[in-house]
Amino acid sequence: MTNYKSSKDYVEMLIEGILITGIVAPIIEEIVFRGVLLKYIEEKTNIVFAVIVTSILFSVVHLFNGELVGMDRYLLIIAGTLAGIMYTTATYVYNSIWASILLHAFWNLWGLFTISNSKIDYGIFQYVINNNNIFITGGDYGMDASLISISGYILISAILLFKKYKY
C-alpha cells in the first residue's frame, strides 16, 4: 500500500524542517558546544584539546538520532567530529558563535534536500540514488555521514583557516 502525503503534510514537514532543523537545533547545539563547553574546556586546558573534545561530544550526541551499528556508527562519529571542527573553525575565524550558528543552519537546511538509497520519510525533496555504498550514501544516518560530506567539512574548515591566516 502506498502512503500518499497531502500538501498539508508537506507544508507541516517544511515548517518543522525549517524551524527545528534549520533554526532551533543549530542555535541550541552551537550555544552548548561552541558557546559553553568549548570556552570552558579551553580555559581549563587549551584550544586544541577543547576543539577535539567538544567535536567528539558533538558527534556522540548525534548517535541518539537513530540506532546505528557497525560502519554506520563509525562514519557518523568521524563525520560529526569533522563537522564539529568545521563549526568551531567558523567560530574562531569570525570570533563569534553566530558564524557557527549560521553555518550550521545552512548546512542543516541543505539537508531538506535528501539523497538516499531508499525512499525516506524526512526531507522535502528527495533523490533516490541506486547505490548501496555507505561511503557514498552515508549509510543509515544519511548523506551527512558520507565521504562527500566529510570532504565538505574538511574543505570548508581549510577555506576558513586559509581566510584567517592569509592576512
Rank of each mutant, 00 (worst) to 15 (best):
S55E: 12
S146C: 08
Y74D: 07
E16C: 04
I31Q: 13
F58H: 10
V36F: 15
N95C: 07
V51D: 01
I31Y: 15
G84W: 00
I156M: 12
L112E: 08
A158R: 05
D140G: 15
N108W: 01
L14Y: 07
E67I: 09
A25K: 05
H62N: 14
E12H: 04
T91A: 08
L37H: 06
E12V: 10
V93I: 09
I20T: 06
A50S: 05
E42I: 02
I124A: 00
D72V: 10
T2V: 03
T91E: 09
F58Y: 15
I31C: 14
A50L: 03
L63R: 12
L37W: 08
L112A: 06
I156E: 11
G138V: 01
E30L: 11
S100G: 04
T91K: 07
I23V: 08
F64A: 10
A25W: 02
Y87R: 14
Y167W: 12
P26L: 11
D140M: 14
G22F: 04
A145G: 09
V128M: 09
T81K: 04
Y167H: 15
S146I: 07
Y4E: 06
G80Y: 14
I78E: 09
V93S: 06
G70E: 02
I85H: 13
G70F: 02
I27D: 00
R73T: 11
I134G: 05
I52A: 02
I18V: 14
I27C: 01
W98Q: 03
V93C: 06
F125K: 08
A83P: 00
I85N: 10
H104N: 07
S118T: 13
N95D: 15
Y10P: 07
I120D: 00
V61F: 08
E67P: 05
S55V: 07
L38M: 15
A79N: 02
Y92E: 10
L82H: 01
T81S: 11
L103V: 12
I78K: 12
I150C: 03
S118A: 11
S146G: 07
I156N: 04
M143K: 11
L19Y: 05
I41W: 06
T114N: 08
G70N: 06
T54H: 13
G70S: 05
G17P: 10
L160T: 11
E42P: 02
I20Y: 08
L109N: 13
H104P: 03
A145T: 06
I136S: 04
Y165A: 04
L160I: 12
M143A: 12
D121R: 11
F135D: 00
F125H: 03
T45K: 15
G84H: 06
D140C: 09
T88N: 11
G66A: 05
